[in-house]
Computed example of a mutant assay.
Amino acid sequence: MLKSSCLSLLFVSLLACPLAHGQILQRELGNFDLKLGTSPTRSMAQGLVKPNAAGSFHGGLDLSHDSGFYVGQWSPSMGISPGKNLEIDSYAGFKQPFDQTLGYEVGMIRYSYPEVETLNSQEFFGGLTLLGSRFGVAFSNDPDKQNNTLFADLSGNQPFGIGVSMKYTTHQLNAPIAVDGGYVGSFTDWSLKLSRPFMGIDLDLIYSDSSLRGNDCSAYSGHNSQCDGLVTLKAVHTFY
């Protein structure tokens, strides 16, 4: 029943998006602000720690109050595409500006996978917004490891219209993993992303890497798509 309702809700958001500006449909409901869309609407709660590529079908909602409290749900994958499982990310938090240039945000996210026998995980996050740029930290407890993440999105200052975001995470495994020549009990990974819109296309240049090398990469289970250094050029065009 829960899975059915979540799918229905996300499907509604997908249908609503052609009416929206920038993939987001926004409506005011008294003191509440409701957003539906296929783009994440929450700055810290979406993509702070788990930047997995979204599937072909994705969407969510966000409901915030004038006081600063908010709740929402985001699905980076609805499990329709081959090799993709349904993922539901539910979050709640509080966001408040000190003034026009400085603000803060705290909250938590619960990651659930209804279609597979994977234990759910939780994450606590917080951050500051300074002159349009965001600096965050997050702590998550996955079934097999603990993760600590530092995050920076320098969108407040974009030379030549290029956005810059960086992420650095340490992973502590609950149990060391055997590899050729020893064991791996912890590792780090990081990424740097340069973003720029060009003729209606969102261009992303991403460099990612980790502290593991060679045979140790068999123990890698971090945020990047692979253990070794990787440069990715991503181009996305929105048709609605």
Rank of each mutant, 00 (worst) to 15 (best):
S221I: 09
L205G: 08
S191P: 10
Y207W: 15
R213S: 12
C217N: 09
S221W: 08
M199H: 12
L194V: 08
S211V: 00
D180A: 15
W190P: 02
D209Q: 10
Q226R: 10
L192T: 11
Y183S: 14
S186P: 04
L205T: 07
A178C: 12
S218H: 14
L203I: 14
N224F: 07
D228E: 14
D209T: 06
C217H: 02
I201K: 04
S211F: 05
C227L: 03
P176F: 04
S191V: 10
F187A: 04
S191L: 14
N174L: 10
L192R: 01
V184L: 04
A178G: 12
I206A: 00
P176W: 03
C217W: 07
S225M: 06
G222Q: 03
N174G: 13
P176H: 10
M199N: 13
D180T: 14
A219M: 06
L212R: 00
V179I: 13
I206S: 01
Y207Q: 09
M199C: 11
D216C: 07
F187D: 00
L203W: 10
M199W: 12
P197V: 01
I201F: 09
R196G: 04
R213Q: 13
G185L: 01
S218N: 15
W190I: 03
Q226Y: 02
P176I: 03
S225P: 09
F198W: 13
S210N: 09
G200Q: 06
A175R: 14
C217R: 04
G214P: 01
C217F: 00
R196L: 03
C217G: 06
T188I: 10
D189R: 02
L205K: 04
I201E: 05
Y220G: 00
T188H: 14
W190K: 05
P197F: 01
C227A: 05
G200R: 06
S221F: 09
D202N: 11
L173G: 06
P176L: 09
G222E: 05
D216M: 08
L203N: 11
G185F: 03
Q226L: 01
S211W: 00
G222M: 04
C217I: 01
P176A: 03
S210D: 05
F187T: 03
D209K: 02
S191G: 13
R196C: 01
S208Y: 08
K193Q: 14
T188S: 15
K193R: 14
D204S: 13
V179C: 08
S186Q: 11
V184D: 08
F187R: 07
L212K: 04
A219V: 02
D209H: 12
C217M: 07
T188N: 14
F198H: 05
D204W: 10
I206C: 02
D204A: 15
Y207C: 10
I201P: 03
P197K: 03
I206K: 08
F187Q: 01
D189N: 08
L192N: 08
S221H: 11
N174M: 06
K193Y: 05
R196Y: 03
A178F: 09
F198V: 11
K193C: 12
I177E: 15
Y183E: 15
C217P: 04
N174V: 10
P197H: 03
